[in-house]
Amino acid sequence: MADASYTTPAGEYDTQLGDYFALLKPRVMSLVVFTALVGLLAAPQSVHPVIAFASILFVAIGAGASGALNMWWDADIDAVMRRTAKRPIPSGRVPAGEALSLGLALSGLSVMMLALSANLLAAGLLAFTIFFYAVIYSMWLKRSTPQNIVIGGAAGAFPPVIGWVIATGSFSVEAWLMFALIFMWTPPHFWALALFMKSDYDDADVPMLTVTHGRRATRVHVIVYTILLTLLAVGTGFTAIGGPFYLATAVVLNALFLKGAVDISRRDEMAAEADGYKVEKKFFRLSLWYLFAHFGMILVEAMLRPVGLGGW
């Protein structure tokens, strides 16, 4: 074959390694790694460090694979949304076909390797999570129902359960409590984002609650879900994965979070427009710390338990 067949026209962009990495949604991956690690370390069985490291890495790769599949499927709507227009596919840095290939290859690799490093149940759960995020959420729910992120939030809630199953080989109430924490946290987190990313979802025809039911209804939904989340998050403090440190943190954070949700529900669009969605943006930022701190405290309780300090 002539060398000329390998050349790309002058000025054409050569996909770099960093572009492929961006396809894996590294920020989402970091959250997945953290929550899966907490699930693994909070479990009653200990895991060999090498097996724990490898297993969490394969969970991260699986999460990245589902991110690549999501970007491949959503390239059309990513292109019209300001927040996502610079992603690798809409910006032309990675061809859509390559994103699909990478997503499928990494999905297979991560599930197979997790089955070898941990157990079949954890691998099956990882496969289901990838399927849920790429097919159920991205391909079906996202474009068809305003409940997209409520049900789709389950995909992001599985990692601590996978971490727990890596360690124990089975499910338990504590693992599902961690699942429920992320599941209930997702809707207010994304609805706050939808409130201040004003026209993005409108432009892309994504039926977010702000588009289908209006902004007033979204504000009411934020407070309702936050109340339910608060009950769950504080209640978790009295279970086997909770303890005094977790409970103290949860009480403070949930009081702040609830106040933020009340502020959001009391505002109208005129007030929000006037200060550039200050309250909504503050609530969104707090939501990131909220989840990090709750899981961080579950980890602290688990780490202190062997020395007789953590837990009840």
Partner: peptide, 15 residues
């Protein structure tokens, strides 16, 4: 060395 190999050196080393 082909010009393509020079351009893709970083990517190939990474892989």
């Amino acid at each position: 060395e082909h010009e393509l190999h020079k351009r893709r050196k970083g990517r190939n080393i990474g892989v």
